[in-house]
Structures are given as C-alpha cells and as structure tokens.
Amino acid sequence: MNFDLTNALFGLGGGILIGLSAALLLLANGRIAGISGIAGSLVALKLPATWRESALFLAGLVAAPAIYALVVSPPDIKITGSVPLLVTGGVLVGIGSRLGSGCTSGHGVCGISRLSKRSILATATFMAIAIATVTISRHLIAA
C-alpha cells in the first residue's frame, strides 16, 4: 500500500490511543488489554468472574469503528482471500494466540512495554513467521 508522512502520523496517533486504552484498563481495572486473552476467556466452558467487563470491552471495540463510520467515514477494509483461506487463517490465529498466550496486543503491546522476555520472544516469532508467510505466498507461490 501507499505510505507517506500522513500514514506515519496517524499510525503513531492511533498507536497512542491503543496504548491509552491498555493503560486505562491496567491502572483502573488491573486488567491486561490482550484481545485474544479477553475474547478467548469468553468462549470457555466456564466463564471468568469478570466476564461482564470483558464483554463490555469487546462491545466498545466492535462499536467504535461503526460509530466512526457513521460520524466520520467508513474505514476502508480490503481483504483478499477465498473462504477456505479465511477459515484457515482464522482457525490458526485462534489456536495460536491461545496456545502462545497472546497476540499482537497482549504480547506485542502489553508484554513488550514491560520488557517481558516471553512477550519479546513471542512477538519476534510471530512477526518472523508472518513475514515469511507473506513473502512465500506473494512472491514465490503467486509469482
């Protein structure tokens, strides 16, 4: 995709918002804003005591882009992929994030910012594998 200074500034600004959200959840409620952890805890046979808080956090996450679409403009979401590819990707992301105890938000933001060795290693691993996956699928298989 095209990249210019505007993307960098909005990226930084959006990142600061994500950081503020995670900071609020930590300092006010003592919770870590890991999306896979929060979502995963709600699809278990036994719900945690804080399931209402988790559900409300996810409700906000889902609602914000819809409100933005109504008030400002609909976000551009480009997904290129067949249904089997989407299913495969979704299952792998679901299993992998729970198995590895975190995703881009839990390990990438909340873990790295406290210099957790586990999170730094997990983030390095999923970044490397994701880069390899894109490189192979776009430039070796599709080419």
Binding site: G89, L92, F126, M127, A130, I131, A132
Partner: peptide
C-alpha cells in the same frame, strides 16, 4: 498465530 496472521 504468525502463520494465520500472514495468510489473511
């Protein structure tokens, strides 16, 4: 997780 993330 990284494999699934890279696919989609």
């Amino acid at each position: 997780f990284g494999f699934g993330w890279g696919l989609v």
